[in-house]
C-alpha cells in the first residue's frame, strides 16, 4: 500500500501527428490544503478531465480523499491535448488511493475518455497507442468500443474497458473482460452505381483507368 507521500505512475501517450510519445501520469496525494490540480501543460480538455475523473470516481461510490492531490503529466514541457488522459489520470489517482495495484498497472499504456457515470468512451488514436505499447513491450488499456481497433496492433495484450468499475474488477482478477478480436473489413455498402450515368463514356473510362492504376 502506498504511503502518503508516495507517487503512483501510469503510462499513457501524447499524439504528435502520427507519432505517439510516452507520457507519464504521476499522482501524489499529500497532506495539505484540499485541492485537485493537473499540471504539465494540459490544454482545456485535459484540465477539464479533473471534473470527469472526480465524477467517475464518485460514481464508483468513492470520494476523493480530502487532501492535496497533484497530477503531473511528464514530460512537463510537452503540450498535452485530447480527452484520452481521463482514464490514466483516474487510474493513477486510484492507485495512489491504494485501490488499484500500481505494479499491475505498470505493464500497461492507458488511454480513454471517462463519462461522468464512469463509462469509458472512445477517443481518436487508439491504434497509434497500441502500436506504441507494442513497441515498448507493454499492454494496452483502452475503451471497449475501440478494442477491435487496438487489436490490429498484433501481439499485444489489450484490455478493452467498458467502464471504470469493470476495469477495476478485471485488474483485481474478480471478473475478467473478454479479449477483443481484430475488426474485419466490411463489404462495401451499395453506393451510387455507374449504371446511373448515361453517356459520358470517356469520363467513365478515365475513372476506370484511375481506379486500376492508382
Amino acid at each position: 500500500m502506498w504511503g502518503n507521500n508516495m507517487v503512483s505512475i501510469v503510462s499513457t501517450v501524447a499524439y504528435l501527428g502520427l507519432e505517439a510519445r510516452s507520457v507519464e501520469v504521476q499522482c501524489q496525494i499529500a497532506p495539505g490544503v484540499v485541492s485537485f490540480a493537473v499540471v504539465g501543460l494540459p490544454d482545456k480538455a485535459v484540465a477539464e478531465s479533473r471534473e470527469r475523473v472526480r465524477a467517475a470516481i464518485s460514481a464508483l461510490g468513492l470520494a476523493l480523499p480530502p487532501k492535496r492531490i497533484t497530477i503531473n503529466l511528464s514530460p512537463a514541457d510537452l503540450p498535452k491535448e485530447g480527452s484520452h488522459y481521463d482514464l490514466p489520470i483516474a487510474l493513477a489517482l486510484l492507485a495512489a488511493m491504494g485501490l488499484v495495484d500500481a505494479e499491475a498497472l505498470a505493464q500497461y499504456v492507458v488511454v480513454g475518455e471517462l463519462g461522468l457515470d464512469g463509462r469509458v468512451a472512445g477517443s481518436p488514436g487508439v491504434l497509434l497507442a497500441a502500436l506504441h505499447a507494442s513497441s515498448r513491450g507493454m499492454g494496452l488499456i483502452c475503451p471497449a468500443v475501440q478494442g477491435s481497433e487496438a487489436a490490429w496492433a498484433g501481439e499485444i495484450e489489450v484490455i478493452a474497458a467498458p467502464d471504470l468499475l469493470g476495469l477495476l474488477n478485471h485488474l483485481k482478477g474478480q471478473s475478467l473482460l473478454r479479449t477483443p478480436e481484430p475488426g474485419i473489413a466490411e463489404a462495401r455498402k451499395g453506393g451510387p452505381d455507374m449504371k446511373m450515368v448515361k453517356g459520358q463514356e470517356t469520363a467513365k473510362r478515365a475513372l476506370e483507368i484511375a481506379a486500376a492504376g492508382g
Binding site: 449504371k195 459520358q200 484511375a210
Partner: peptide
Amino acid sequence: LHVEVQAVSAADLVLPPPSEGS
C-alpha cells in the same frame, strides 16, 4: 487524366440505362 465532358443531352436521358454498372 484530363477528360472533357459534354453536357448530357435530353436525347441521352431517354436512352435505356447502360448495361455495364460498377
